[in-house]
Measured scan of single mutants.
Amino acid sequence: GIPATNLSRVAGLEKQLAIELKVKQGAENMIQTYSNGSTKDRKLLLTAQQMLQDSKTKIDIIRMQLRRALQ
């Protein structure tokens, strides 16, 4: 079985993952909103794209940590 310490770690990672998935969803929504907007929305679009990139990276890292914890 999986050690108890790993189980609480997994629960924490799953919570983090859920949050990051919401951030990713929000960033994707912002990108959709701003991509057909005016030029003043360009900065917001770039910010949203950066957020999305960061979020995807975090999600990958969390998933990797989850896999390790579940081994």
Rank of each mutant, 00 (worst) to 15 (best):
R68A: 13
S8R: 06
G37M: 06
K24H: 05
K56R: 06
E20A: 08
Q25Y: 05
D60H: 12
G12C: 15
T57D: 14
L7I: 10
M30N: 04
Q16N: 04
M30C: 09
D54M: 10
L70Y: 08
E20V: 05
E28G: 01
V23G: 02
N6K: 07
E20Y: 12
A27G: 01
K15E: 05
P3E: 12
K43T: 09
L13E: 00
S8I: 11
G37T: 07
R42P: 13
L70T: 06
R68E: 14
D54W: 06
L21S: 02
V10W: 02
K40F: 11
N29E: 13
M51N: 04
E28H: 07
N6T: 11
L45Q: 02
S35M: 10
K56Q: 10
D60E: 14
R9F: 14
I62R: 00
K22L: 09
N29I: 13
N36E: 13
Q50A: 07
A18M: 10
G12E: 15
Y34N: 02
Q16V: 03
L46Y: 07
A11Y: 08
L46W: 07
Q50M: 06
N29C: 14
M51G: 02
M64F: 08
L70G: 06
E20K: 01
T5A: 11
M64W: 11
L13V: 00
L45D: 01
T5K: 08
L52C: 03
K15A: 08
A48E: 01
L17S: 00
L66K: 01
L45P: 00
I61H: 08
L52T: 01
Q16W: 07
E20S: 03
V23H: 08
D60L: 14
A48W: 09
G26S: 12
S55Q: 04
G37R: 04
Q49M: 12
L46Q: 10
L46G: 03
S8E: 15
S38E: 11
N36C: 14
T5C: 15
P3F: 08
N29S: 07
R63V: 10
S35A: 09
N36W: 06
T5F: 10
M51S: 05
I31P: 00
L44K: 11
Y34G: 01
K58N: 03
T47A: 13
G26P: 00
Q65A: 11
D54N: 08
P3N: 10
P3K: 05
T47K: 14
L66I: 13
A11L: 09
I2D: 07
K24M: 13
A4S: 11
I61T: 04
A11D: 11
Y34V: 03
T39H: 08
Y34W: 06
A4H: 11
Q49C: 14
D54E: 12
L46I: 12
L13A: 00
L17Y: 02
L44V: 05
I2K: 12
T47P: 02
K22F: 04
V23I: 12
S55K: 00
G12R: 15
L13P: 00
R63D: 02
R63S: 05
